[in-house]
């Protein structure tokens, strides 16, 4: 992250200095403003879902779900930690339901819990799975197409499903291969 950030930032700043030096400050402020707006949007999403998930946690519902999925999380993520598997299970469930916003807090909690065992294999695997999107129903895109007057807004469902599976399968395979080769 540091390398990319530094390279992109320096290259962009030099280019701006040459072409339009007066635009640097406004663009930085604009970026920060976008971030603040984004944070507000995210807070709304997280408030709804983390409020709900705190109820699910307190009533023991998410514990039950995690228990049901535990054989899977143990196999795939190689973890025995209860807190980690609970959050992993909730993250995967939310993703499959297409609730991307709800999935993020669980992923962050799971990564925090996995830090205790220094299980960076699982932390990175979770990132790889989430960063390739594993949603079943692309709700945003379908809604967008419908509002643009598409006759068959949902006909991208099957191609999207295939692509989602392809992307996650590719990324996980590459990651497992890469891990073998690097060591």
């Amino acid at each position: 992250m540091n390398a990319i950030f530094t390279i992109v930032f320096i290259a962009s700043m030099i280019a701006i200095a040459i072409t339009a030096p007066d635009k640097l400050l406004p663009s930085l402020l604009g970026g920060a403003e976008d971030a603040a707006k984004m944070a507000l949007t995210l807070f709304c999403i997280y408030a709804v879902w983390m409020g709900l998930s705190s109820l699910a946690e307190k009533s023991g519902l998410s514990h039950g779900a995690a228990k049901a999925l535990k054989p899977l999380t143990r196999r795939v993520f190689r973890t025995d930690d209860d807190e980690a598997s609970e959050n992993l299970a909730m993250n995967i469930s939310c993703n499959l339901l297409g609730l991307g916003g709800a999935a993020t807090p669980y992923a962050v909690k799971a990564i925090g819990a996995l830090e205790k065992d220094k299980n960076d294999f699982a932390q990175k695997l979770l990132f790889v799975i989430n960063a390739t999107s594993i949603q079943i129903l692309p709700t945003t895109v379908i809604a967008l197409r419908a509002s643009a007057g598409s006759l068959k807004a949902a006909d991208i469902f099957l191609p999207s499903l295939i692509c989602t599976v392809v992307s996650t399968a590719c990324a996980v395979t590459l990651y497992l291969l890469g891990r073998k080769l690097w060591r």
Binding site: F5, V8, I16, A20, L24, S27, L28, G30, G31, A35
Partner: peptide, 11 residues
């Protein structure tokens, strides 16, 4: 990250 994206775009 958003600042990086903004300068990358504007540049």
């Amino acid at each position: 990250i958003f600042m990086m994206c903004a300068v990358f775009e504007v540049s």
